[in-house]
Amino acid sequence: MPSRLLGRTGRSVSTVGLGTWQLGGDWGDVSEPDARAVLDASVEAGVTLFDTADVYGDGRSERIIGAFRAADPSVPLTVATKTGRRVDQTPEAYTLEHLREWTDRSRRNLGQDTLDLVQLHCPPTAVYEDDRVYDALDTLVADGAIAAYGVSVEEAAQALTAIARPHVASVQIILNAFRLKPLDEVLPAAEAAGVGILARVPLASGLLSGKYDEHTTFSADDHRSYNRHGEAFDQGETFSGVDYEAGVKAAAAFTALVREHGPADATPAQVAIAWVAQLPGVTSVIPGARNPEQARSNAAAATLPPLSDAFRAGVRDLYDSRLRAAIHGRW
């Protein structure tokens, strides 16, 4: 597995990591043994970056990762967690007292004295602009509670605000073949500033796997059922904000593009991940996985050969013709 420096953290991480939202909830039930099997398979495939959050299953995802690390401390891992969504989303909530409380809870869950990387978890826009928030995070670094901090964002403008801050180590942002706006300014700005980019939702909540159609149903506790229009959290987190029926049609076009111009024997999901991983400025792609087979397949995307110019042009054409009008201006 290739690795890259994760921005200002000073750590090298695998170019394909593992997102662990699904180990906590909102994707249907995943048992703890199944979750452990996913972590095992990922590490065996060369993954060295796990991304989690304190609200994934109210800390369940963090605790599972903490137990995994405790079972074999020699495994080389960077664990990035996220914080801030345990309270009502008002800028005033992001105080040193709260940030210390939240990170202390994550330290207990993960069994770490010092957290590798803490990311603000898509807070209100005003938080990214608040000097006091960065001062509080700097205090936690000085105290040894966290080694580095970054942000997770919904919008490109929020990312650019954070990148301008001198101690922000990384930015996590939705980036996939159905969400191209970060290519305009965010990736160049991050690369110039030495800020890492963690690309989440690389498969547009599974659409880019090519496995879904207009008849596919999802369980009631899966956000792909209950958040299609932003009922529970930002709509962009579900299918990248793409209307489901339009997304199914666009995914079929993406699959056809993979068959015509993609690497032989690679699945649409692998090519979708590789397309993101091969973008200049991207540090690591963090797809989720519900079983070991998915985890191994996702990790294998890191070793695909460079994608052709024809394929990349096809992705741009697909986005411009089918999705740009509805997506580009929103996030």
Rank of each mutant, 00 (worst) to 15 (best):
E185V: 03
D143H: 10
D72Y: 07
N109D: 06
T267P: 06
E260Q: 13
A193D: 10
I197V: 15
G28Q: 01
L160D: 01
Q294A: 06
Y149K: 10
L323P: 06
Q22Y: 08
N176V: 12
A142S: 14
A80V: 14
T15W: 08
Q270N: 01
W331E: 05
A37G: 06
P76D: 07
W102S: 06
R330L: 09
G28P: 04
G46M: 07
D72F: 10
D104P: 00
R107D: 03
R290Y: 13
R85W: 04
D104H: 09
C122V: 02
F311K: 04
T217K: 08
D243Y: 10
T283F: 09
I327F: 01
K211N: 14
D309L: 06
E97V: 02
N291V: 11
F68C: 09
V171M: 06
S209Y: 01
R69F: 02
F68R: 01
G236T: 08
V118C: 12
T303S: 05
L23D: 04
Q294I: 11
T103G: 01
S297P: 03
G144W: 15
A162Y: 04
E129R: 13
A266M: 10
E154A: 09
L18Q: 12
R85Y: 00
A301W: 14
D58L: 14
L208Q: 12
W275Q: 11
G241D: 06
G281S: 11
D113L: 13
H229N: 12
G329I: 02
P305Q: 10
D51H: 10
T161K: 15
S74Q: 11
A35E: 03
G314E: 04
W102H: 10
K211M: 06
P166N: 03
P182E: 09
H215V: 04
D40C: 03
S170C: 12
G19N: 11
S31L: 12
V271D: 07
E231M: 08
S14M: 10
H223C: 13
D213V: 12
R60I: 00
F68L: 11
R228A: 04
L137N: 13
A136S: 14
G111P: 13
R69Y: 05
D26G: 07
E260P: 04
R8D: 11
V43P: 02
Y149H: 14
Y226A: 00
L18H: 09
V16I: 15
E92C: 14
S106D: 08
I327V: 06
G7H: 07
L207T: 05
R11I: 05
W102M: 08
I173M: 04
V151I: 07
H261D: 00
A251K: 02
V282C: 11
V79F: 07
G194M: 10
